[in-house]
């Protein structure tokens, strides 16, 4: 036991303040954050369906909120979250099947997920606003 009494002050792992997260780690935590956000999105979906069940007046009121600038911004956020969680979730299913664990495959997957999210979001909004 050399230097047993000397206190050590090594950084504990994972030391997030000084550790530059790899892109895969950023996407991983984003998967969790978008998942939690989309859980709130389900409440919005339920509110929308319930407003329709109550009748045309409540439905028009609900759509009024959704079609407002703030509502559209929220909707844009939910759509990005949905497409990201969808793309990254498909990647997780491949990992769960024991595939694509090589670093080169993971790096390629990062790019596919990001491009997929952008393309799907843009396509949905272009089609919706056309």
């Amino acid at each position: 036991m050399v230097n047993a009494a000397k206190p050590t002050s090594r950084p504990l792992s994972p030391h997030l303040q000084v550790y530059r997260l790899p892109l895969a780690a950023v996407l991983s935590i984003t998967h969790r954050i978008t998942g939690m956000g989309l859980s709130l999105g389900l409440l919005l979906l339920t509110w929308w369906l319930t407003s329709a069940a109550y009748g045309p007046d409540t439905y028009d009121m609900a759509l009024g909120y959704i079609a407002s600038p703030l509502g559209m911004l929220v909707l844009l956020g939910f759509s990005v979250a949905l497409f990201f969680h969808l793309c990254n979730g498909i990647r997780h299913l491949f990992w769960d099947a024991g595939r694509n664990f090589e670093i080169s495959q993971t790096k390629r997957g990062n790019i596919y997920v990001i491009i997929g999210t952008i393309v799907l979001t843009a396509a949905a909004w272009l089609l919706a606003l056309a």
């Binding site: 389900l42 409440l43 979906l45 339920t46 369906l49 319930t50 329709a52 069940a53």
Partner: peptide
């Protein structure tokens, strides 16, 4: 909320 959405 799932039940509320389904009933609606």
């Amino acid at each position: 909320f799932a039940a509320l959405g389904i009933v609606s």
